Amino acid sequence: MRLIGLSEVLPGEPVTNRDMAERFGLHERWLDRMTGNRSRYFCDPHSSEDVPKNTGDLATSAGRQAIEAAGVDPAGLDFLVLATGSPDHLMPATVNTVADRLGINDIPTFQLSSGCAGALTALYTARGLLAAGLRRGLVIGADSVVKLWPADRDLKRIRPAELANFALFGDGAGAAVVDADDEGPGLVVEHLLLRTVGKGRAPAQVVRWYGADGAPTVPGPNGTQVREAMGEEDYKAIEEHVPGLACMVLEELAAATGWRVPEVEHVLPPQLNGAMTEKIRQRMGVSAEQAVSCVADTGNNGNALPFIQLHRALRRLEAGPGTGGRVLVTTIESSKWVVSGLALRHRPEGVRDVA
């Protein structure tokens, strides 16, 4: 499998920690310290027409840009895969509305429900489809998290720790056009791993769906009753397990490819938040020059993040001297504990980039 076009989409203008502090009564310096994130992006249903307003808008824009970057005709695609943890509806599947908007028809489509490992889960699926005889496809990761904010909406009544959790996230999308012919230019997949490691372990991230009756009420601060939040994270469990799992994946990729990690030009660590990602990078033994991180500026946009990292790694590869640049990608999903990793080799003068 070869990646021949990449994209990233972030909606609207960045929302800084100062903006969050003013909007929700949080402290800017506290957010800096707790999250390590400087900004994030949110879809706004009331924004101007050309700004994405939901997951489908984000995915459509990312898909269109990846197709343009690859220089291919949408009619020549053989499949479409969308990974998301925040579809616009349960039905119709968001992937099918995206296909319609892109002018794609008469091909199989797949929507994968996932989180941080979703992008590589989608690429794993795409590789299987290519191995089965299909020639070319489009893979998208997209998430919009506004719908996951506390259902009560009176955010000043929510515990600060819970608000900090939500301040980690942001909206975004990324995409890749993938091709079965690995002889051409682009990012050639050398190894791809994906598996669950959550047997007997409690989920560390939960996103609920309440159905027609809506969220139940639960005890809130100072004896109040508030509506239960749609999402929550066990940050202590994430802090305990993710760094070690990331190191494990990196070691497996190195063993499978024969690459020495200190010599690999670009390493993409898990993107939980700016503070945690920096700790993981150091534990992995990856230098700051090797690391390709974006979460401190984009927020944690879930299924989009590895595509955004790959898009930015590609810019580095195309701007740098020499040939044969290597890329290692590690992603860890804490919802029910999924590990995934990807090793790619850059073949120059291939992937055309769309800024």
Rank of each mutant, 00 (worst) to 15 (best):
T196F: 03
G137Y: 00
D154I: 07
A99H: 03
D152T: 08
D73K: 14
D78T: 01
T109I: 12
A151Q: 10
A164E: 13
V189P: 01
G63R: 00
P87H: 08
A117P: 03
L194T: 11
H89D: 14
P160S: 08
A69S: 15
A161F: 06
A131K: 13
H89P: 05
D88F: 01
G137P: 08
V189K: 05
A126L: 07
D181W: 04
V72K: 02
A93C: 05
A93W: 09
V98Y: 00
G128L: 07
D106M: 03
R135K: 15
A176Y: 10
F166T: 12
A93Y: 09
L112E: 07
F110N: 04
P74T: 09
L194M: 13
W149C: 03
M91A: 07
L163R: 11
R127C: 10
A99C: 05
D100A: 14
D179S: 06
A117W: 01
D73V: 10
D181H: 04
V139A: 02
S113A: 13
G103D: 10
V72S: 03
G63I: 09
A62G: 09
L163P: 08
F79L: 11
A161M: 13
A175I: 05
D181I: 12
L168H: 04
G137M: 00
A93K: 07
P108Y: 13
D171W: 03
A142F: 00
S113G: 09
G76C: 10
A117K: 05
Q111F: 02
P87D: 12
S144K: 01
G172A: 04
T109K: 05
Y124D: 15
P150L: 11
L193G: 09
D100H: 13
L130Y: 04
R101W: 02
G172P: 04
A119C: 12
D181V: 12
G115M: 06
D182F: 00
N105Y: 12
L80S: 07
L120K: 01
L129I: 08
G174Y: 02
R195E: 15
V197N: 04
T121Y: 00
R157S: 15
G128W: 06
S144Q: 14
L80P: 09
T60N: 09
R135S: 15
E183L: 13
